[in-house]
Amino acid sequence: MNPRRKSRLSIVVFVLLGVAVAAALMLYALRQNIDLFYTPSEVIQGKNDDPSTRPEVGQRIRIGGMVVEGSVVRDPNGLKVRFNLNDIGPEITVEYDGILPDLFREGQGIVAQGVLKTPTVLEASEVLAKHDENYVPPDLSEKLQQVHKPMGVSDLRGESERDRQEKALSSDKSEDIK
């Protein structure tokens, strides 16, 4: 191998080694900031019922489930709220100090992000209320109707006037054949 190729090969090896070390350091630094998603059953029993996969106390996690009916307790002197969250199994207690979303209520699905204080208590830093995926805000619905009507779309499901005309023509043709 001539010296020129040898120097090029060593440069390529050093660059690849540098990229690998940088990627490893970046992943190591981000490891502490990763929020893993759990359900209340997975927090208690572990993922796939494996106790070794349970989150540790002090770990940042996201937990999603339904707010248990009758479990919401509000502090009369502040914004602190405490409620239970469950899926199909055990319950987790969530403590939150802040303003809850407008869609938050008992029996509603939520996602809470925070730090696990004890194996069954999460101190939440953020609570997100989930809503029906078919929900369209009224303002947006009006704007969509204004935009889609001139284009010939009669509703938000995407059926255009042309589709309706073709459907009517095909049904008329089938009636004429009979």
Rank of each mutant, 00 (worst) to 15 (best):
V12H: 11
V12Q: 12
F14L: 15
V15N: 09
L16K: 04
G18V: 07
V19L: 07
A22G: 09
M26L: 13
L27S: 12
Y28A: 08
Y28Q: 10
A29S: 12
L30G: 05
L30I: 03
L30Q: 13
L30S: 07
R31E: 11
R31L: 04
R31I: 00
Q32M: 05
N33W: 15
D35G: 08
F37E: 00
F37S: 09
Y38M: 08
T39R: 03
T39V: 05
P40I: 03
E42Q: 14
Q45L: 13
Q45Y: 10
Q45K: 09
K47E: 07
K47Y: 01
N48Q: 14
N48W: 06
N48R: 15
D50W: 11
D50A: 10
P51H: 00
P51F: 02
P51R: 02
S52E: 05
T53M: 08
R54G: 14
P55C: 05
P55F: 15
E56P: 04
G58F: 03
G58C: 04
Q59K: 07
R60M: 06
R60E: 03
I63G: 00
G64M: 10
G64I: 12
V67Q: 07
E69L: 08
D75G: 02
D75N: 11
D75A: 08
G78L: 01
G78R: 04
L79W: 06
V81C: 02
V81H: 03
R82K: 09
R82L: 04
F83G: 06
F83S: 04
L85M: 02
N86M: 06
D87R: 08
D87N: 06
I88R: 15
I88G: 14
G89V: 10
G89T: 13
G89C: 06
E91K: 05
E91V: 06
E91W: 09
I92E: 13
E95S: 05
D97Y: 00
I99T: 10
L100R: 04
L100S: 09
P101Q: 04
D102M: 13
E106S: 07
E106N: 05
E106D: 11
G107T: 12
Q108G: 11
G109M: 13
I110Q: 07
V111K: 04
V111Q: 05
A112T: 13
Q113I: 13
G114K: 06
G114S: 09
L116P: 11
K117R: 15
K117Y: 01
T118Q: 01
P119L: 01
T120G: 04
T120S: 15
L122M: 12
L122Y: 00
E123F: 00
A124Q: 04
A124G: 08
A124E: 03
S125R: 03
S125K: 05
S125P: 02
E126L: 12
E126W: 11
V127H: 02
V127G: 02
A129Q: 12
A129M: 07
A129Y: 14
K130P: 01
H131Y: 03
D132P: 09
N134D: 14
Y135G: 01
Y135H: 03
Y135V: 08
P138D: 14
D139G: 00
L140F: 07
L140R: 14
S141Y: 06
S141A: 14
E142G: 12
E142C: 09
E142S: 15
K143A: 12
L144V: 08
Q145C: 02
Q145D: 13
Q146N: 10
Q146P: 03
K149T: 14
G152M: 06
G158F: 00
